[in-house]
Amino acid sequence: MAAISRDDVAHLARLARIDIPESELDHYASQLDAILEAVDKVSGLDTSGVEPMSHPVKMENVFREDIPAPSLNAQQALAGAPAVEDSRFRVPRILDEE
């Protein structure tokens, strides 16, 4: 049973900006299938009446006051940047997705 198709893999790869060659799509599809099948075992349990959990600890309304805190300086901020120009992060040409 192939729940994940070649097209799904190609789509996921595109979303994740990973370059997967055509020839390897089937390979990953079957691997992802195996993972899904393993996780799918949970579906066998009766979870009616169980709220999906996003936060393991029950807490609400945790706020920070609107008081400025020190920021990094530009040198610190840019220290890990592969390329810098004019105190800004220099990034490769952005494909037109606007």
Binding site: R64, I67, P68, A69, P70, S71, L72, N73, A74, A77, L78, D86, S87, R88, F89
Partner: peptide, 17 residues
């Protein structure tokens, strides 16, 4: 985060992790 929202600061000076 506690970084300032002030407009017109030098580039990348109102930033933090």
């Amino acid at each position: 985060c506690g970084c300032s929202t002030e407009f017109g600061g030098e580039p990348n000076t109102h930033v933090c992790p």
